[in-house]
């Protein structure tokens, strides 16, 4: 079984995001970029499937600017076998929408014929939480989102999902698209030898045009703004003072 893992290059989760003064988006120049944390978990899961003998090959794919090569190399260093970069934007500030990403991923799936696609639950930049579901729809496959447990057995996968009320377990027919949640696993660190080895693993470059997919956005971004800031509060000296303040404020 081949496993395909889409990985997105995003601003590192530790970076304090700043909106550009002209309101034209978030400043990404000279900012640390990393693999989307959920996608790191998806890569880890795919590698574990390979180690368990359930997968033969792990292919990672990233869509966006050329710099996403680094993201792919990170995944290769963790243990993925080969990588596909789909260049679809020139400017690092251009974000390809989930619908277009899903269409490109569908084209890759049609070519590579994986039986499992492991996506992240959400990209921590646009916070859309949509691509995996959209890809599954375009393929006409089953979907299992927000997975905290995945158990593949022949032509079905048993997936535990994190839902609002707790956990839900479902069984999905393969091939399937699974989107992974934070508690599925703890991703490994790539060792130095593996980072070196990753440099020699195959990474091919394609363009959106190669797949004849139109990536023009459906949503026009009219403005990007800073959220309202909370005014600074006070530090109280004791529990009694806290209780008094809360009573004054009518909060309790």
């Amino acid at each position: 079984m081949k496993v395909l893992v889409p990985v997105k290059r995003v601003i590192d989760y530790n970076v304090k995001v700043r909106v550009k003064p002209d309101g034209g988006g978030v400043d990404l120049a000279n900012v640390k970029m990393s693999i989307n944390p959920f996608d790191e978990i998806a890569v880890e899961e795919a590698i574990r499937l390979k180690e368990a003998g359930k997968a033969d090959e792990v292919i990672v794919v990233s869509i966006g600017v050329k710099q996403a090569q680094d993201t792919l190399r990170t995944a290769l260093a963790m243990g993925a076998d080969r990588a596909i970069l789909v260049a679809a934007a020139e400017d690092i500030h251009t974000d390809i929408e989930p619908l277009a990403v899903a269409k490109l991923l569908k084209a890759v799936v049609d070519e590579e014929a994986p039986e499992l696609v492991l996506c992240g639950k959400q990209a921590i930049d646009n916070d859309m939480n949509a691509t995996g579901q959209m890809l599954s729809a375009l393929l006409g496959w089953s979907q299992a989102t927000f997975a905290s447990g995945v158990d593949i057995d022949g032509d079905v996968a048993r997936v535990t999902r994190e839902v609002d009320g707790g956990l839900q377990t479902i069984s999905v027919r393969m091939p399937t698209v699974v989107t992974v949640d934070l508690r599925l696993n703890e991703p490994r660190y790539a060792s130095l030898p593996n980072i070196m080895k990753a440099k020699k693993k195959p990474l091919i470059e394609k363009t959106a045009a190669d797949y004849r997919v139109d990536v023009s956005p459906r949503l026009e971004i009219l403005a990007t703004s800073e959220p309202p800031v909370r005014s600074a509060g006070i530090v109280v000296g004791s529990v009694d003072e806290l209780v008094a303040k809360l009573k004054d404020a009518g909060a309790v």
Binding site: P98, L99, M128, N129, A130, Q133, D164, R218
Partner: peptide, 23 residues
């Protein structure tokens, strides 16, 4: 925007060939 709807609505949007606007 519950977990339930976030599971379903992007699928609906893709089937209709439109983007989803989350949250």
């Amino acid at each position: 925007a519950t977990a339930g709807a976030k599971n379903i609505l992007p699928r609906v949007a893709a089937l209709l060939d439109v983007m989803v606007i989350s949250d």
